[in-house]
Write a protein that binds this DNA or RNA. Sequence first.
DNA 1: AAGTTCATTCATTTTAAATTGAACATTAAT
DNA 2: ATTAATGTTCAATTTAAAATGAATGAACTT
Lengths: 166, 166
Amino acid sequence: MSGEVEAKTGLSEFEAQVIGFFCDGVRMLGLPKSIGEIYGLLYVSQEALSLDDLVSRLGISKGSASQGLRSLRELGAVREVEGVVGRRVYYEPDVELKRLVGGFIKEQVRPHLASGEEKLAKLKSMVREMPGNAKSDFYAGRLERLGRWSKRARILLPIIQKFLGR
Amino acid sequence: MSGEVEAKTGLSEFEAQVIGFFCDGVRMLGLPKSIGEIYGLLYVSQEALSLDDLVSRLGISKGSASQGLRSLRELGAVREVEGVVGRRVYYEPDVELKRLVGGFIKEQVRPHLASGEEKLAKLKSMVREMPGNAKSDFYAGRLERLGRWSKRARILLPIIQKFLGR
DNA sequence: AAGTTCATTCATTTTAAATTGAACATTAAT
DNA sequence: ATTAATGTTCAATTTAAAATGAATGAACTT
């Protein structure tokens, strides 16, 4: 009657709210909701959880859980816990902001920045190969400005990481 | 045969590539492609452009153009140019990174941060109202950590803006 | 005030992204 | 070697987001 939370499984109200908190967070970063759900549940759980735990408690598919865990591993946001028993793998969250941001920058930001710089280089060569185009000076100026943007980003990223690292 | 660019209108290859550059950029920020197209075309255009110019040159609908321009105005990424003639409004891009980032932080980042902090406060009160729950200490610790995250973000944002402001 | 020009809104359609789950590995136990 | 347990992949589906464009509104012109 009041909440917007889907409580089809045995999540407490508190757990559901924390999970919702992380869903909002990851959506702001352009990541799928399921990643927020998975990280969120790990974040509120004192014990490490297996893939099957995530599936049953969150009510998501095995596929989602598997893919979500992979993304989170790549981001460095979760780590495997030595599941002494059997071959089942248990996960726990990395809760250090420094590392979370570092992973995000490394996996999401830097690749985009790099591909942007490639494209920029191509654009610059296009301008160079323009004949006596009246606009080419204007174009060159605009591209130069873009180059300054990405240079600033490159300087800024380590500053951010350093700041968050304590 | 080779390119992925839709050239249904009179966009030069160069213009199309610049627009593609900005499409990638805004998608990284979680904004719709049309916003990248509009800003991109304004960015490569020496003269200010009207809504109808955007519609005809980009081949997008009036609705998209209108909504996209609104978002860009709200972000402070474009400004109206005093269209001396008639009542048609012409737009030009704001090309200062400082202001673009500032607008993005103000419009996109801060609201999310604020709503996150609200939710966090609610979660904290939920923990306080927990009876002698065995997990409440663990929960309190986790929430405290989240609070530190958002405090850091609040400190970091002005640093970023200051850095980009020269 | 009737017509014109230009911009916005919003219900519908389209497109893109995320999710699902059955089929396919992989590894371990017997 | 066979079965059981666990994890991954990917074509098909579902869901969410964005684009469309007809209807509407607002502002100007005559």
